[in-house]
């Protein structure tokens, strides 16, 4: 796959109040493909994910040290524009949060804010990204109805369409199927599998089987520390670390 890592985390430590959630984590995320971040709950998976689009700093008393490089530039550097970083790095949250507006406006929310949406191509944009999220056929007749009227599974795909509409290079997925029924979850997985050719996907999941199904690379965290990272095949079949082996076998975590 990619020669150079797309995102590189260097010596990242995060404290919530007095509690350290990430301990000197250094890991590289290769370009394209799906990297699954696995580990038991409370091990810092979500923290790591949220550090990569600087959502961490929005939640109160957080202290962050270390660097996160996106294409070689540190996103925590003083002069960096946060909104630009977040435009380049999309997020699919664990629960769908449709914005309080119509389906149509939800998809266009990002493009409009960034001034990328011209009036004459708005309809085409909406259709393109709804198709990309495999939602077009279901909602084409009710684009103007409020987004929260959709089912949870549809809402999550709408959120995906919304994220794709700003053309991010990286898509962060925080347990994107946690709130969904198995069939909706399946569709999200299929979509992610299709998207990995065009973008780097970082998937936080606590479902080992999901990681096995989707991941090209695996990062294993344990109590805020990085234990092992590598190609999926190697980590799953032949882990170097004892703790990884125990976790994969179901002995711990």
């Amino acid at each position: 796959m990619g020669d150079r890592p797309h995102i590189e985390v260097q010596g990242l430590s995060v404290w919530y109040g007095g509690q350290q959630a990430l301990k000197d984590v250094s890991v590289a995320f290769p370009a394209h493909g799906i990297t699954a971040v696995i580990g038991p709950s409370g091990c810092g998976k979500t923290t790591l994910l949220r550090s990569m689009n600087r959502l961490l700093e929005t939640s109160g008393e957080v202290r962050i040290s270390g660097r996160v490089l996106l294409d070689g530039t540190d996103i925590y550097a003083p002069k960096v524009d946060v909104t630009e970083i977040r435009t380049r790095i999309g997020l699919l949250a664990s629960k769908p949060f449709p914005l309080p507006m119509s389906i149509y406006d939800n998809v266009l929310y990002g493009p409009r804010i960034h001034g990328l949406c011209r009036r004459d191509n708005a309809d085409a944009t909406v259709e393109r990204y709804l198709r990309a999220a495999d939602l077009w056929e279901e909602v084409r007749d009710r684009l103007q109805s409020p987004a929260h009227a959709l089912s949870t599974g549809q809402q999550q795909r709408l959120c995906l369409a919304r994220a794709l509409a700003v053309e991010p290079e990286v898509l962060l997925c925080d347990e994107p199927t946690a709130a969904l029924d198995p069939i909706s979850a399946q569709r999200i997985e299929d979509l992610l599998r299709g998207l990995k050719r065009h973008m780097t996907i970082i998937l936080v999941t606590h479902i080992l089987r999901q990681a096995r199904r989707l991941a090209d690379f695996v990062v294993f965290l344990w109590l805020g520390e990085l234990v092992e990272a590598g190609p999926a095949e190697q980590v799953f079949n032949n882990p170097c670390n004892e703790r990884t082996r125990a976790y994969l076998m179901g002995d711990i975590g």
Binding site: T58, R86, L91, F97
Partner: peptide, 9 residues
């Protein structure tokens, strides 16, 4: 809020 921030708003 995070959904909106994550889109670069």
């Amino acid at each position: 809020r995070e959904a909106s921030w994550a889109l670069g708003a």
